[in-house]
Design a protein around this nucleic acid. Structure first.
Lengths: 162, 162
DNA sequence: ATATGTGGTTTCATATTGCAACTAAATGCA
DNA sequence: TGCATTTAGTTGCAATATGAAACCACATAT
């Protein structure tokens, strides 16, 4: 459910989740990235209720993540496509997939494979890096709010919080 | 809401969302990454209802994302900390933050800055790369389901689906 | 033209969330 | 020690979202 909107929060994560944080949103986006375009593709593949799908698709369209366009194969039915903005969520989707592969892999089930479409080579794990391109260890990462926001000192750093 | 569990789905993204897909989960994890440890930190900072927070924290603990441990500062109250598994969600959190910064930045509001804790240098955008380390363009990315799973041919590739 | 498929909308039962009030233990202060 | 306040919840109730099934209009197939 959601009766409270994250959009007023001065946090880019909260505002992002306001767009894609609903239960089905990211799965719809994933399916779109894997080639789903039509209402029935999403509906059959996800097993989502039709009214919920309608609702989620409209939210995504309103948020500029997807767009409803005339089919390019002659069909009179419209297609749902990702916008540039939506496709730009790929790192999020891939990061989710890779975390799942690592920590909650389904033994007897297949998982999502992300590759270079040309060569078929698996991509490396999406991971934070410095501008120079070198990987950053988790404990080396700093997260804070930009300008105006209060630094939020919760407790004295007595020792490394790791 | 959610009455349907994603966990049976043979998809790493769905199973990941089963752990962190609830409305507040990722924001709680974000706060934990920024140093929140105590119940009140999360509650005050997020403005989440206490019963909901209790519920979400328990879910995260059950999912192995967070753990409840005795405080190390002498307090009798327990602290909520990320597990290794939870901290490993950093790429997801960072990817969400960076997408939000790019597409839904709050003009008069601060956003999340991710840096090298030592130098303060901003990290580059989290982005898919080949094993060699070079960036992959969005249209070069292939996503498919591993072994067993049906390839899900939805339509003939008439032209590039971009 | 007639049947089926596609893309919805509507209605109802159920599950979650938010809010406010209440509680019990921990902490702060005199 | 003695009492007020804070913290970490729990409980009950109202509001809202979801799922399932029925229903409907338009497209497509035969």
């Amino acid at each position: 459910m959601k009766t409270k909107s994250f959009s007023e929060m001065q946090c880019s994560i909260a505002r992002t989740l306001d767009h894609v944080g609903s239960w089905w949103s990211l799965l719809i986006i994933r399916d779109a990235m894997m080639g789903a375009r039509r209402f029935k593709h999403f509906q059959e593949n996800l097993g989502i209720a039709k009214n919920t799908l309608t609702s989620r698709l409209n939210d995504l369209i309103e948020g500029g993540i997807m767009k409803k366009v005339p089919a390019d194969d002659g069909s009179a039915y419209d297609e749902y496509r990702l916008t540039d903005r939506g496709r730009d969520l790929s790192p999020v989707i891939i990061a989710l997939a890779q975390w799942g592969d690592k920590w909650v892999a389904h033994e007897q089930g297949p998982s999502t494979v992300i590759t270079d479409k040309e060569t078929g080579e698996r991509l490396s794990r999406v991971w934070p890096r410095r501008e120079a391109g070198d990987l950053v260890e988790l404990h080396e990462i700093g997260m804070r709010r930009a300008n105006g926001a209060p630094p939020k000192i919760w407790h004295q750093e007595k020792e490394d919080q790791t």
